[in-house]
Design a protein around this nucleic acid. Structure first.
Length: 164
DNA sequence: AAGAAGATTCGCT
DNA sequence: GCGAATCTTCTTA
């Protein structure tokens, strides 16, 4: 399976809303790995969320992947997700993990090495990227740290600038 | 050992 | 749009 990342949220060093704020614990240890390792956590008794570590080793920081545009293996994603619209397969952080079969077993793996999960070379196409507040976050809620491709139908939440 | 909060999703109105 | 479901992890006693 493959998908293009079309929506993310940043949780940089020192961010009050981040899981790494307050220091390293058993759960968030992967956020302190060097950039491009996986941090996967379970939330609300129902969903996994997939993040990339983003800083140097020992420094807490990460990026939540909130939505993918499915590129390959949509049939397998459907098999995992059940009967949902194609548009909803990977629209949302928990949904994309369900579609790809990502769970805590993936926590801590390097995303630049061999399978089972990795990042491909960057897509250098010119695209319009919008920003907004992060979704579902109560602390540091005014920071504009959500990034999404404008107009892309696979984005969860707002897909363009809100009026006023 | 117990309690509270949480980077969500789904179904119903 | 609103609220319940559901359980892991961390904090406090």
């Amino acid at each position: 399976m493959a998908g293009r990342i079309v929506e993310t949220e940043a949780y940089p060093p020192g961010d009050l809303a981040a899981h790494h704020y307050g220091g390293r614990t058993q759960r968030n240890a992967s956020l302190f790995l060097p950039a491009h390792h996986a941090y996967v956590y379970y939330i609300y008794g129902s969903s996994f969320c997939f993040n990339l570590s983003s800083e140097d080793g020992g420094v807490g920081g990460g990026v939540l992947v909130r939505a993918l545009e499915p590129l390959l293996g949509a049939e397998l994603m459907c098999a995992r997700r059940g009967s949902v619209a194609a548009r909803d397969l990977c629209r949302g952080p928990g949904r994309l993990c369900r579609a790809l079969g990502i769970d805590r077993r993936f926590d801590g793996i390097a995303l630049f090495g061999e399978a089972p999960l990795w990042l491909a070379s960057p897509d250098r196409a010119r695209r319009s990227v919008g920003t907004s507040r992060r979704i579902g976050v109560s602390r540091a809620s005014t920071r504009l740290l959500r990034f999404y491709e404008r107009g892309n139908r696979f984005v969860s939440g707002p897909r363009s600038l809100s009026p006023a």
